[in-house]
Simulated scan of single mutants.
Amino acid sequence: MSVFVALDFPTWTETERFLKDNDLAGVPVKVGMELFYREGPAIIEKLKADNHPIFLDLKLHDIPNTVHQAMKNIASLNVDMVTTHAIGGKEMIYQAKQGLAGSSTKLMAVTILTSMDDNVLERELGLSGDVEENVIRFAALAKEAGADGVVSSVHEVPVIKKHCGDDFLSITPGIRLADSSQDDQKRIATPEKAKELGSDFLVVGRSITKAENPRKAYEQVMKEWQHGE
């Protein structure tokens, strides 16, 4: 079980300063589109040099062959996990997994973004069923296609485990300490709640990066996650 700190910074300079100033060398980190698109693969090498486990959250979504070729390049980076969108379909997920063949990188499929709710799914995307039903649908599809697990909110973890098995991994963003703001996420939870519901990995961003004392906030997240306190 790991807690990944979301490095939602625009540049390596700001990222490096944050990690060094707050004594966070070696902690698991999430690199998303904002930072990766600015710095490229070099950001991964710099983080690996400081022994950071890395969750590369790029949410690839394209035709199967393009995703396959992209994943072949990502495989060479030797990150711990990478994401694709489950809504891209079974063949795309399968080709993503094939692109990672020979590497130890785990493929995680994004189900429904934690910024979405039933209203968005129905009125904007035209998807039948509520959030939970769609998460189950996409999780089952991802497993059939060979993904190692899915990204979902904490609240869907129990039904994912029920339908896909306990060994199907679940990584959950939208984690907030009790005194943190909700921001733009709708389906959030505390580390303690995530542990209770069976999450395997957590992603924590603003509760740590925007805290007055990020190191202390990280330690509090770990305490709640490991001990439920």
Rank of each mutant, 00 (worst) to 15 (best):
H61M: 11
I175E: 06
P158I: 07
M222W: 13
P10Y: 02
M222F: 11
A140K: 15
K72N: 03
I74N: 03
V3L: 05
G205E: 01
A147R: 01
L121V: 07
H155N: 12
A139H: 12
D21I: 04
G198S: 03
H227S: 14
T66K: 06
D8E: 06
E229L: 12
F36T: 00
I160C: 08
P173I: 05
L47Y: 02
A49E: 13
I208W: 06
D62L: 07
T84G: 11
G198Q: 02
D21M: 10
D23N: 15
E133R: 11
P41I: 02
I54F: 00
V157W: 12
T15A: 07
I93M: 12
L202Q: 00
N119K: 15
D21K: 15
K161M: 03
V110W: 00
L113C: 08
I208F: 01
D118L: 04
G205Q: 01
L58R: 01
D118M: 03
E122F: 15
G198L: 02
G129N: 05
V221K: 08
G32F: 08
F138G: 07
G205I: 01
T13S: 14
N22R: 02
I43Q: 02
G102T: 13
T105P: 07
V120S: 11
S180I: 08
L47A: 02
K106A: 12
F18K: 09
T11H: 09
H68K: 15
E16S: 14
H68S: 13
N78I: 02
A142V: 09
V157H: 10
G126D: 10
I87S: 14
E132N: 10
E91Y: 14
M108W: 05
G149Y: 01
D23R: 13
V79F: 00
D117A: 06
M116I: 11
Q182S: 15
V31G: 03
